[in-house]
């Protein structure tokens, strides 16, 4: 395991060559990521540092992609999606235009979950969907909407919970077939998102740490799930402020299942069920 000084040297080297700034990441999990990379790449501290200092974009882009975590699911945590379906989207239904941003969209499962839900609610035409991530490999996969079936099959259960069932009325069951949204090829172990869904979102590379609004829009809803957990409290505050400034009013923010807003930013948002709303202050 690397020492804190060694970790800081690596953070500094990455920043110098690439501009990516990991200095305000959560120290313990960041340290573990670097340890894992050293093991996976069969490097040691010195060889990793040297390789970074060679300034090869191909290398440092891969390094940054491997540092960041890309876990995502279709309709992750159905209760959160019930909030989106029954509490957030109905309030936006009257709007002529709705802008939604998936900040840190990873391989895109969450983006497609949203598009499917919007389609079921008959809102898809009026919604602009923007999605961004730091990791270009994950983004490329998000744009393709093609996944390994066996890794995603269990999440079809989430689909049932959110799209087919109604938690407020157990007698309701909408038998929406999977084939409406997915092409599933079990032999090739592939699950492909249907074309009409894939052309909907605008995917762009974006490092949220830099806090730039690359879409030049204000948003009705920002989805940012399990991204802030990798940041320390100070960086979390800055990003939450940035979200606050880029939300419309009313505006909605959805974080990960075990994320909450702490510190000074807590007064800028109302917490309701599994989401936050922008407060006017």
């Amino acid at each position: 395991m690397l020492s804190e000084d060694q970790i800081n040297e690596i953070i500094k080297a990455i920043k110098d060559v690439s501009g990516y700034d990991f200095s305000e990441y959560s120290p313990r999990s960041f340290q573990r990521r670097i340890d894992k990379i050293i093991e996976d790449y069969r490097f040691d501290y010195k060889s990793l540092l040297k390789k970074i200092e060679k300034k090869e974009p191909e290398f440092y882009e891969k390094l940054v992609a491997d540092i960041t975590v890309n876990t995502t699911e279709l309709f992750r945590n159905p209760p959160v999606w019930h909030s989106v379906k029954y509490r957030i989207l109905p309030k936006l239904m009257e709007n002529e235009k709705v802008d939604i941003w998936h900040a840190g969209c990873s391989t895109g499962q969450e983006v497609y979950s949203m598009i499917i839900l919007l389609n079921e609610l008959g809102m898809l035409d009026r919604v602009n969907i923007y999605a961004s991530d730091l990791n270009t490999t994950a983004l490329a996969q998000a744009e393709k909407g093609k996944y390994i079936y066996r890794f995603n099959i269990e999440y079809l259960q989430n689909f049932d919970e959110v799209i087919r069932k109604n938690p407020y009325n157990f007698e309701e069951y909408n038998d929406v077939p999977y084939s409406k949204y997915f092409d599933i090829d079990q032999v090739k172990d592939k699950i492909l998102i249907k074309d009409f869904l894939r052309n909907k979102a605008i995917f762009k590379k974006h490092d949220i740490v830099k806090r730039e609004n690359i879409f030049h829009k204000k948003f009705d809803l920002i989805m940012c799930r399990n991204v802030l957990i990798y940041f320390n409290l100070s960086l979390q505050s800055k990003v939450l402020n940035f979200f606050y400034d880029n939300l419309k009013f009313p505006g909605y923010l959805v974080l990960g299942y075990h994320e909450s807003i702490l510190g000074n930013e807590a007064i800028k948002f109302h917490k309701k069920h599994y989401y936050y709303t922008k407060k006017l202050i």
Partner: peptide, 13 residues
């Protein structure tokens, strides 16, 4: 994760 500032840090890696 447990951090030395007496706080939790969660991760989905």
């Amino acid at each position: 994760y447990i951090q030395f500032d007496n706080t939790f840090s969660l991760s989905t890696e």
